[in-house]
């Protein structure tokens, strides 16, 4: 039986060819899932215009992968700027929150206290809000009473 862990396979399957010369380089985000989940609403708050522009470009193109590289680079750079700023000002709270998420099966509802500290810090230093569009009553992340666990 083949092992599930790819690191135990006898060989990699990799294509190390770099991007063609004509395409400008951009650093990749490189964050794992829990930090990305932590900062996703702030990425949405700051990079909404870039994200919408990119997705609009993709939807209007027949070869979206090739035509929207410029917009894609702007999206990546904006996301990196958010991550860098949060890491600069709120590194401790961010780390507490994403560690909690890692331990709570990535359920945001299990980490409300940590999230409140992170939201407050980000609001103070970056002036970004977590907005849940179309919320039913008070947004879930601002409620004091939880019905479910």
């Amino acid at each position: 039986m083949a092992p599930h862990d790819l690191r135990t396979l006898p060989y990699y399957v990799a294509d190390p060819t770099p991007l063609p010369e004509g395409i400008p380089k951009v650093p990749e985000v490189g964050a794992t899932s829990a930090p990305l989940l932590s900062v996703s609403y702030f990425i949405g708050a700051r990079c909404q215009a870039y994200n919408d522009n990119f997705m609009l470009c993709r939807s209007q193109s027949k070869t979206p992968q090739k035509d929207c590289l410029y917009e894609g680079r702007r999206v990546t750079r904006c996301a990196i700027s958010v991550l860098e700023d949060i890491n600069k000002h709120c590194a401790e709270t961010l780390k507490t929150h994403y560690t909690c998420l890692e331990n709570a099966n990535h359920e945001l509802s299990k980490c409300r206290l940590e999230e409140a500290y992170l939201n407050k810090c980000v609001k103070t230093f970056l002036n970004l809000d977590k907005v849940l569009p179309g919320a039913d009553g008070i947004p879930v992340h601002e409620r004091n009473v939880k019905i479910l666990d």
Partner: peptide
């Protein structure tokens, strides 16, 4: 939804 463009851009490259 907020993360999707970012992941898609990386995949497109």
């Amino acid at each position: 939804l907020y993360l999707l463009p970012l992941l898609q851009a990386e995949f497109d490259r």
